[in-house]
Design a protein around this nucleic acid. Sequence first.
DNA 1: TGCCCTGCATCTGTTTCGGCGATGAATCAC
DNA 2: GTGATTCATCGCCGAAACAGATGCAGGGCA
Lengths: 308, 308
Amino acid sequence: MARKADVTLTQLRYFIEAATCLSMTVAAQQLLVAQSAVSAAVAQLEQQVGAQLFIRQRSKGLALTAAGQQLLGDARAVLAGLDEALDAARGLDNQVRGTIRIACFVTMAPFLLADVLALVQEEHPHLEVQVLEVDAAGARDALRSGQAEMVISYDFGYSDDVRRETIAQVPAHVILPAAHPLAARARIPLRELAHERMILLDLPHSREYFLSLLASAGVEPVIRHRSHGYETVRSLVAKGHGYSILNLRPRHDQTYDGRSVVTRAIADDVPALPFVIATLASMRTTARAQAVADAVRVVVGRQLSRRD
Amino acid sequence: MARKADVTLTQLRYFIEAATCLSMTVAAQQLLVAQSAVSAAVAQLEQQVGAQLFIRQRSKGLALTAAGQQLLGDARAVLAGLDEALDAARGLDNQVRGTIRIACFVTMAPFLLADVLALVQEEHPHLEVQVLEVDAAGARDALRSGQAEMVISYDFGYSDDVRRETIAQVPAHVILPAAHPLAARARIPLRELAHERMILLDLPHSREYFLSLLASAGVEPVIRHRSHGYETVRSLVAKGHGYSILNLRPRHDQTYDGRSVVTRAIADDVPALPFVIATLASMRTTARAQAVADAVRVVVGRQLSRRD
DNA sequence: TGCCCTGCATCTGTTTCGGCGATGAATCAC
DNA sequence: GTGATTCATCGCCGAAACAGATGCAGGGCA
């Protein structure tokens, strides 16, 4: 006996139409196929189901058997369910609702997420955003594994299979203890830092970036401390342990432990960090991702204009 | 954009297997097809759905996108629903449950139905029998149109597309008013009825049968009354309006209006009426029909043995 | 850094399957 | 009987699916 697994959607569709019209000839016209196709499809379906579905009344139409009646209803339900499932899968790409998972580079999170999430919620109340805070390696993994549909980060030399949209350029700056002699200068040449002690924000890609800035000015830094934590670095600097180089810049200079840092521009012509929204090149951009990207652009634009 | 109507069950099955294995290569082995087939099927499905379902991680497996997650669950549900529907359609042919519609020749109904229905209900509590009382033409129509899956009747010269199983032979007999001179005879030669007045049970096939019996004895009957009703014929006979010829024979000779008839065998060697169970030759006999047929055989067997 | 292994995509030749059109068989209406 | 209707069947064809080989990219390892 033929296995039910071999039943075809076409067979079901032809059967439904034939059962609806109670005529294979009419059904064939409706379906824009030859009558023989309908006849063959129904015959196959009957064989595979193992039950007679129609009673053939020569020169009259068809009549449904009990099994046919039963299958007609069920088959309609199955096809409707399939359509619904496909629409749902489609809809997930095209509607700004449901859930989107994104990743955000850890140091950026406190600067952006609150505003971005608020803006998205305002614009698209039915879209829920789940955020993963990641480092450079984590960003790549999150994209690849599908854990995150998009990543907010710097441009960590992503491979070609990652699509990047640059939102802004974030210049590096120097932070110093308030009492530091160099704090008197408006702009600090990196060369001047050669013999100062440095507090390094020690994150995978950031680390190499900071060191490359100094190297381009011929400076090999004296690294006094390393930390994964952005605020930890600031407090170490404020306490007088050394200077640091950072990109994002809080709106104030206070630290958690009540001190403060001073922020100074870099006099050298050094590259800023590209702030990007990264997605997989192999994935079509969904409307949901676009909505979040829009919010990020707006928030970043606001923060840049405030700083001027 | 490709229409969702072109989605194939094979595509769904391959997709589900690939999503389950998180690998097209493994899925292909499970499915006993080439890896290229799975790859192509998934690619087509993605195109037709209009959404990306997998994230391809070279040299690693696959990861499901949000749309893929969604579709995986829905597709499984659809396939399960389809299997269920096919099983249901199949089951209707193989299980003795649900509903069966049969037809019964009108004059037989009061002799058989009560016992048959009781027996079926006893043997198969989950099987409901719906009965249509029909004449000879109605029996044929009921079969053809699917209104009845089987018919209990005499053999009305059904065409070849009707399968007949003969259950019994029902001999014709003569009924007379109690006071009739011929009532003294144990067996009555038809020739003796030549000048008697006849009450004809006037039903399509029965009519021709009764007249053919008389004709075979060279008798052209004097028809005094015709009636479609079996009991009407009996009461007319009891009242003395004439004689009649019938086949089935009540267990008593009383009539509704308090009179009685006498029943006498026919002396001539005339053909009995074949009592048959008729079904469409083009339909496989279902277990349900078989169950009812069994009950009919038992009931008819009982009634014949009682009469001896 | 170079090599191998893995895993998906793609290409090519082959086969299978579904559909078309014509024909046949059975029935009904006239 | 004749024509019309309706479904089944047959031969042919084209498109689609498949298998197998190859290509390509990334990860792991030495």
